[in-house]
Simulated assay, not measured.
Amino acid sequence: MITPRLQFHWLKAGHCNHPECVAMRGGRWQSVMFPALCGLLIHPTRGNILFDTGYSNHFLQATQPFPERLYRWTTPMTLAPEEVLTQQLAQLGIQSTDINYVVISHVHGDHIAGLRDFPYAKLIISRVEYDSASSMSRLGGLMHGFLSALLPPDFAERVIFVEDSVSLNLPAELAALGTGFDIFGDRSLIAIPLPGHSKGQIGVSFKRHDDRRIFLVADACWSMGALKNNQLPTWFASRIFSNVRQYQQSFLGLRKVSTIADGAVLLPSHCQQSWEYLNGGQQT
C-alpha cells in the first residue's frame, strides 16, 4: 500500500504575549509573542483536516465572566481580522463546513477556541484528554487552561478517540517516542502521545508531497530554541502541567528525534521560528 502524501498549510490564528523567562529557563524578561499555530492538512480521500484551531473570538466570549477573565489577563490575546481561521480558510477556497476533521492536540483554550466554527467536523482527540477535561470542575479547568464553554454542545456525538485506531511502531526517525496510532488506517496521519503538558496531549506526523516528514508537536515544547538548548519551562510555567515528569520525558524524546540528520521537521505550536520556517504559512 502506498502511503498518501498530504498537502499542508501552517496557519497563525492569533497570538498571546508572555515573558520569555517564564516559558523557558534562561529566557529574557522581555515580553515576547507566542503565535497560536494550527495546521490545515488536505488528504487525497479524507479531505480537509485541521490540527487545532488557535484563537477565535469565542475565546473572548468564554473569558468575559469572572473567574475566566483571569485567563485573558494572564495571557493577553491578539487576533487580527485577517488571522481569523475561517477567513484564512476562505482565502484558500475552503468554507468552515468543508472541514471534515479537527485533530485536537489538547484542550487548552488557545488550541480549541475555534471548534464551534466547524459544525460538521469529526473531532479527533485522545480518550485520556477527553476524560480528563470531562472530569474538571469550572475552577479546575481554568487552573489548567481549559474552558468548557469553547466546546461545541454536540462534542460527545462527534468525537473520535485516537486509541480506537490501530497502534503501530513509529518510523525510524520518530522511534524514540515508541508507538503511535494510525488515524485513518493508511499511515498517512499518525497520532503520537506527548503527555505531560496535559494528560492526553498528542502530536501528529505525516509526509508532504516532497516526502519530507512533518511532526506537529503542539506544546510538548514551546520553541525550537528551547528544544535545541535543552531549556525546559520554569517552575512557574509548569504549574499548569498535568505531570512535570511526563513533560520532561516527552521533551527528551523530542530532543532525540530532533538530532537525527534529515529527520522529521518538528513544528511546535507557539514557536515563531516554527512559523517562519514555512515562510509565513505558505503551502508545502
Rank of each mutant, 00 (worst) to 15 (best):
P4W: 02
P4V: 05
R5A: 14
R5I: 06
R5S: 14
L6Q: 06
H9I: 00
C16W: 05
C16Y: 14
M24T: 04
S31P: 07
V32A: 06
F34N: 03
C38Q: 07
L40W: 15
L41K: 11
H43S: 04
T45F: 02
T45W: 07
L50M: 11
F51G: 11
D52E: 15
D52M: 08
Y55A: 05
S56C: 11
L60V: 10
L60K: 09
A62L: 08
T63V: 12
P65E: 02
P67F: 00
L70N: 11
R72T: 09
W73I: 11
W73F: 12
W73S: 11
T74K: 12
P76D: 09
M77A: 10
T78D: 10
T78W: 03
L79T: 10
Q87F: 08
Q88I: 03
Q91V: 03
L92M: 05
G93Y: 11
G93P: 12
Q95P: 00
Q95K: 14
Y101E: 00
V102F: 02
V103D: 01
I104P: 00
H106L: 09
H106I: 03
H106A: 05
F118A: 06
F118N: 05
Y120P: 00
I125Q: 00
S126L: 00
S126V: 00
Y130C: 06
D131C: 00
A133G: 04
L142N: 06
H144L: 08
G145K: 09
F146C: 13
L147Q: 07
S148W: 03
A149N: 10
L150S: 06
P153Y: 11
E163H: 11
E163P: 12
S165N: 09
A172I: 10
L177K: 04
I183N: 02
F184H: 08
R187G: 00
L194D: 07
H197S: 09
K199S: 10
V204D: 01
V204W: 00
F206D: 02
K207A: 01
R208W: 01
H209I: 00
D210I: 02
V217I: 15
M224L: 15
M224I: 12
A226V: 00
L227A: 01
L232S: 12
P233Y: 05
F236E: 13
S238F: 04
F241M: 13
F241I: 09
Q249M: 14
G253N: 06
D262C: 13
H270N: 14
Q273W: 08
S274W: 07
W275G: 04
E276Y: 11
E276K: 13
E276Q: 15
L278V: 13
N279W: 01
G280C: 09
G281Y: 05
G281S: 06
Q282F: 06
Q283H: 14
Q283R: 14
